[in-house]
Design a binder for these strands. Structure first.
Length: 674
RNA sequence: GGCCCCGUAGCUCAGUUGGAUAGAGCAGCGGUUUCCUAAACCGUUGGUCGGCGGUUCGACUCCGCCCGGGGCCUCCA
């Protein structure tokens, strides 16, 4: 096909789909207001009418203009409707209610564009995006709180990639901190294990579970006698120094636990590209480089008096203007970055890490391959002397840190440090992707066998605590979900092989879990409860998966391949057919399904702009719900009218495609049967 | 004490830039399977949107105060 023809074809359809029509409508309105009233509104509010019969877009514009133009809203709306003239791909504007202007699109146009899967080119911002998520301390098994983090992070990555962005996924490994030190203390002082014995233990299929219990034990041991904490201080010292027996043991343990975390997350189709470790931040002297910059820029100051005497501190809160030279900062407003013993705290290392992320540090990690996923993708880890032949990490344009809301202040400190260094551009592209924690309901805690105080029983939720060994381990939850799904699949599909049934059960389990973690908006604390998390009915992942499976079943039983059909709808359904079946009272109901299908990319844009994946979960559910209603009402294969049958099949094909696509962005696969 | 988050149906939650009659799932009650159809569908019960005041033509949404719940404010990470 000559390229000129392709260009014409693309231009013909460019501008379709929900968000593009919205933009076009706004432009026309803006032009009209300028032309007729000499008004230039900064924002044209466009919303969706409560019912599809009223149109596809609603403008409450006239209410806003009533005072400005000294006319009743209805009058203004009338003038706009009468005066605006034709708009491409819109049927007409209508006056409604007390002064709403509703816009109707040409349904058959939108439907044929959607069925042809026209996706207008979006302007993709330049530069790579870095998403940091998971970042679980490598000293114990991952729990449900980590699952929320990883699922949010992974879904956000998929959203960005859907929008055409290039994304690096990093998982920061704090392998030299207190938590790892504690578990080492457990192995050395409580278990009294040698390095060889520990090495043997790391080969346990769930070594992270062993550490989970040991970590809780160590915490209790510290409580028994404050002196026991000296062991931790010694271990921490050895880790910071490196190159000794304790550090070797720490490496053994943290890498083994890390490997387990990667396996756990891989069960949910969550992968990482690079694992930067704190040990390299220390040993490759990232901090020294960052420290020098921070001192030069005056971001850090050395305290010679008071409670922070001997520390390098940063001001907290608003940056004080340069003119205010003599401003003494209250001790409470100082953030200690370097302790009086010369060691650097967590935030300091984080500042160095973030300078590296933006390519501002002037140093780089060493890299080696650490983990190969079954699909062949390699995950790299930091090291001191690495493989020179490595991909380029860091040096990105934008970063998103998926970290829970409790660390908001530490995140702000890092951003302030960037600003203090004059990196405002980078600070503006630093997003703390903040979300609330996962807690347990008292009932759930009781089910798990924890003793609850009267006070705890009265709470609406209780915080998970790795230190106390209080929580639901990620693998346990996944196992339970798979077992539960497997039981159902076994009874529904006894004719399938064990392997097939297991695959389906796993997909359902993952769908249920990922959907569960995504359906809550980020600021909402999830009060975890097995009954809800294990549900496969109602607003759940399996509900949406089931809708797609039903759609596929229609094609299978009808002897069509759904993807082939979806790829060639135009030869089965004409624009005239779309016009015939999508209009009128009868058409409204099915049109609602088409309209919802057209909104997927629009919703994805909103998810990115607001860093809120929950909108996509909501969209998927609504689409599945509309489809189920449609499915129940229209026996498609039994439809006697051939052209109507083809139209109904086109409807199924498009919904199936959009739902599958949206689920994939949520990391949810569609089973072959359910 | 300072800062942040939450408070919407019995329970768990949506409600985006203020807009048309406040929605969904679960639970409850009553129905629907020789079908592409029950992990589903239909119907039904259930609300002083924590309270008071303010801004606005219009407030669940914005502002102020108060009440209740949670979190953060360590030379922890």
């Amino acid at each position: 096909m000559p390229s000129a023809t392709i260009t014409v074809f693309v231009n013909r359809f460019e501008g379709f789909l929900y968000r593009h029509l919205e933009r076009r409508l706004a432009q026309q309105i803006r032009k009209f207001l300028h032309r007729s009233y000499g008004l230039d509104l900064p924002k044209i509010v466009i919303e969706q009418p409560p019912r599809v019969e009223l149109g596809e877009y609603a403008l409450p514009l006239a209410f806003e203009l009533a005072k400005k133009l000294r006319k009743p809203p209805r009058k203004i709306a009338e003038e706009i409707v009468a005066g605006i003239g034709p708009i491409d791909d819109f049927e007409r504007l209508e006056l409604a209610g007390a002064g709403y202007i509703n816009a109707r699109v040409k349904r058959e146009q939108l439907a044929s564009a959607l069925s042809a899967d026209e996706r207008p080119k979006a302007e993709v911002p330049r530069g790579k995006v870095l998403v940091e998520h998971s970042s679980i301390n490598p000293n114990k098994a991952a729990h449900i709180g980590h699952l929320r983090n990883a699922i949010l992070g992974d879904t956000f990555v998929r959203l960005l990639r859907f929008a055409g962005r290039e994304v690096d996924i990093q998982n920061y490994i704090d392998n030299t901190g207190v938590q790892v030190a504690d578990v080492i203390v457990g192995f050395l002082h409580l278990e009294k294990k040698s390095r060889a014995e520990i090495e043997a233990l790391t080969r346990l299929p769930r070594f992270d579970y062993f550490c989970w219990d040991l970590y809780a034990q160590v915490s209790r041991w510290y409580e028994q006698d404050k002196q026991n904490r000296d062991a931790r201080v010694q271990v921490l010292h050895a880790l910071e120094e490196g190159g000794n027996e304790t550090a070797a043991i720490a490496d053994l343990i943290s890498l083994a636990v890390l490997r387990r975390h990667l396996e756990t997350m891989d069960r949910l189709d969550i992968e990482y590209d690079f694992l930067p470790r704190e040990s390299e931040i220390l040993h490759l002297h990232f901090w020294d480089a960052a420290f020098a910059k921070l001192k030069d820029a005056g971001v850090l100051s050395f305290e010679t008096e008071g409670k922070n005497k001997g520390c390098w501190v940063m001001r907290r809160g608003k940056v004080i203007p340069k003119e205010a030279e003599n401003t003494e900062v209250a001790e409470e407003d100082q953030k200690v970055i370097v302790r009086s013993n010369g060691t650097v705290g967590y935030v300091g290392k984080d500042i160095a890490y973030h300078l590296w992320k933006f390519g501002l540090l002037g140093r780089d990690f060493g890299y080696r391959k650490f983990y190969r996923y079954p699909n062949g993708h390699d995950c790299w880890i930091s090291t001191t002397n690495g493989d020179p032949n490595h991909p380029h990490f860091g040096d990105v344009a934008e970063i998103y840190n998926v970290i829970d809301a409790r660390q908001a202040e530490a995140q702000n400190t890092v951003v302030e440090a960037l600003r203090g260094l004059g990196y405002n551009e980078q600070a503006d592209h630093y997003t703390h992707f903040s979300y609330e924690m996962v807690a347990l309901t008292p009932r759930c805690a009781a089910e798990l066998g924890y003793e609850l105080s009267e006070e705890d029983k009265a709470r609406s939720y209780i915080e998970v605590s790795g230190r106390k060994g209080f929580g639901v381990k990620a693998d346990d939850l996944i196992d339970t979900l798979i077992a539960s799904a497997k039981k159902e699949v076994d009874s529904r599909h006894p004719q399938l092989s064990e392997e097939e049934r297991m695959t389906i059960a796993t997909q359902i389990a993952v769908g249920a879990l990922r959907y569960f973690m995504l359906k809550f908006t980020k600021p909402s604390v999830i009060a975890f409860d097995f009954k809800e998390a294990l549900s496969f009915e109602g607003e759940t992942g399996p509900y949406a998966q089931y809708a797609v499976v039903r759609a596929s079943n229609i094609f299978r039983k009808g002897g069509f391949d759904p993807d082939t059909f979806a790829g060639d709808v135009a030869s089965y359904v004409s624009t005239d057919d779309f016009e015939k079946y999508l209009n009128g009272a009868d058409g409204n109901e099915i049109w609602e399904l088409w309209l919802a299908s057209s909104k997927t990319s629009y919703v994805i844009d909103q998810c990115i702009a607001t860093t809120e994946p929950a909108y996509l979960a909501k969209h998927v559910f609504q689409l599945a719900q509309l489809f189920n209603t449609f499915y129940h009402r229209h026996p498609i294969l039994a439809e006697p009218d051939e052209s109507r049958k083809r139209f109904l099949l086109a409807t199924v094909a498009v919904v199936r495609r959009e739902l599958t696509r949206a689920l994939a962005v949520m990391g949810i696969a569609v089973p072959a049967a359910m």
